[in-house]
Design a protein around this nucleic acid. Sequence first.
DNA 1: CGCAGAATAT
DNA 2: TATATTCTGC
Length: 383
Amino acid sequence: MELTKKWMLYEELRVLVVDHDSTTLKIVSKMLGICGYEAVTAKCAIDALRIVKERKNDIHLILIDTHLPDMGRYELLEKIMEQTSTLPIVAMTTDDNEIVKLGCLFKGAMLCLVKPLTMKNIKDLWQFLFIGGREQSISIRTSNRVQKESTDENDVDKSTDKKSQKTKRKEHDEEVSTRQVEGDGSKSTGLKKPKLIWTQQLHKTFLQAIEALGIDKAHPKEILQHMNVPGLRKENVSSHLQKFRFSLKRDPDVKKKTFESFETVQILNHRTKLPINVNVFMANPQETQPQPCNNLSSTSINFNLMGSCDVVSSESCFSKVITSQTCLMNSTRRRSLEDQERRQRFECNRKEMTSTMVEEQGHCMFKVDEELDGVLDVHDLLF
DNA sequence: CGCAGAATAT
DNA sequence: TATATTCTGC
């Protein structure tokens, strides 16, 4: 009965869609319309904020893209949360990256959807409205923010000015009082922390942190700082570090696989005649799925030997690096003949080392049969 | 007190 | 087994 009532209340749903890309806006609006929702659109974060401010009681759900030109990744999310903590927010992101999704969740989004959105996604959106109106879910959201608070000290977030510090503190007070008012006694006071899953992506970030800090200097606090993952707590890192160290002890080869092959190689670009330094390191051999990684520059490319893939943002000239044989085979199998023909080969000085580069949609893939060493002689690289 | 790391619990 | 939590000593 309750449910029906709620649903009736929201029979005319108004959704604010924020995305810089007008095509996305158009498509999403249309889909919303088909589902019987009303769409309000904003092309940038500033507009979105204004609309939220003016019509916050008139809008029932906000759908925002994580990449807006006029604000940082989580900035709009944070600002909206400051204005209204009851309006449900659903984030949209282009890359299927767990860390980004987690980030959105910790910044207050109820869900992070991967674009392009499907009708199924849209159709189900009303549920968030309903969930958003419930106290329980509000407390879940605030509890997330408590976690964020505790780990954010090291956050290199640009929005850590004094003003937002103040706001954060205020929010924190509100949370405390909310909990007291709730007075749900023993059970709800213990905000259950969800068990953290160390995904390959997260583990890779962890390894990179250790690599950067040096294995002896890698202590939980520094690792956490270096990883810079929203919501990740020191205890998580400590626990994982302990396990990791045990595994090194049990099997010293892990260390070899993980670190020892790290080295810098130079790739020569024939067109520009300029060498490019490439950092080569081993990663978890089990990694076979492409893993997003968007902090690579054109002059320092992380190469994973033996297993994983790096997907570099499209702004970077190099988009994707795949080095594991399995990986390449997997992706090759899916590739059409035409694509096969677009393959370009290059060889390095070392005879035993032949690498293959595959281009697709601005992505480059590499397969490396042996460990890299020396100077690679690249003929037709596009960077 | 805060921290790292070991030990133990879930 | 993987991760969390508690314990211990610095």
